[in-house]
Simulated scan of single mutants.
Amino acid sequence: MTVMFLIGTLVCALSVVVCWVMTAVRDHPADSSIISLGLIELYLIVYAVYAGIRQAAGASITGEAWEFWGYIVTALMLPVGVFVWAMIDKTRWSNLVMSFVGLVVFVMIYRLEEIWWGSAL
């Protein structure tokens, strides 16, 4: 397990918990849920920069580069897309939908680690 994966797991888990709690207590998109999406996006930007620097320095990935970067680009679009959707659908359920970003991004960073290092954690 890498430090980047552990940090991502923590950020995603925190986001999921915050969004679930806000689904129970708020009837509209909560600021804390939106901030948790921002933290996931920030983490993904840092992950992408780290991966780019690592590859530019000559380190290779075990899997396909197009697949690796495809996962990163897709993951980067998720929080933004769900944020836009939450601003359009201002109901309690926006918080619940935002929680799925944390779950999906966790799975995606797990897969990124498999592609990067060549094995499951």
Rank of each mutant, 00 (worst) to 15 (best):
I72D: 03
T62C: 13
L96I: 15
S15K: 00
G118S: 05
W117C: 06
I35R: 13
V18H: 09
G58Q: 00
T9H: 04
L78K: 11
P29S: 10
S36E: 02
I35H: 09
E114S: 07
A51C: 08
E113P: 03
V84E: 02
L121V: 02
N95P: 02
D89F: 15
L6P: 02
E64I: 07
A24P: 05
W93P: 02
A86F: 00
T62F: 13
R26F: 11
F106R: 08
G58I: 10
Y50K: 10
A59P: 00
G38N: 07
V73H: 00
Y43W: 03
A57N: 14
W116Q: 07
A86I: 00
V73G: 01
Y43M: 03
D31P: 00
I115F: 10
T2P: 08
E64Y: 01
E64N: 14
M1V: 02
F5C: 04
V97A: 09
K90T: 09
V101Y: 12
S119M: 13
V105M: 04
A59N: 13
A59Y: 09
M22K: 06
E67G: 03
W116N: 08
S36P: 01
R111G: 00
R26T: 14
G38M: 06
P79L: 11
L14R: 05
L14F: 14
E64L: 03
G118F: 11
V73D: 02
V18F: 07
C19R: 03
G70M: 10
D89P: 00
M108G: 00
S99H: 01
D89L: 14
W117N: 15
C12E: 00
A56G: 08
W116R: 15
D31L: 15
L10T: 07
T23N: 12
I61Q: 04
G70L: 04
C12P: 04
A57G: 12
I7P: 02
I53W: 07
I34A: 09
Y50E: 10
G102S: 08
T91F: 01
E113Q: 08
G63V: 00
I34Q: 08
V82H: 03
A56F: 05
L14I: 13
F106P: 04
N95V: 04
G63E: 06
M98F: 15
A48T: 12
I34T: 11
A120Y: 08
A65R: 07
T62D: 11
W66L: 14
H28I: 09
L103Y: 14
V49L: 11
F100S: 09
C19L: 02
E114P: 02
I35E: 15
L103M: 13
G102E: 03
T74L: 15
I35W: 15
E64A: 08
G63F: 01
I40H: 01
L10H: 01
S15V: 04
L44M: 06
L6W: 08
W116D: 07
Y71P: 03
T9L: 14
S33E: 12
Q55Y: 13
T9Y: 12
G52D: 08
A57R: 12
A56V: 10
Y71Q: 07
K90N: 06
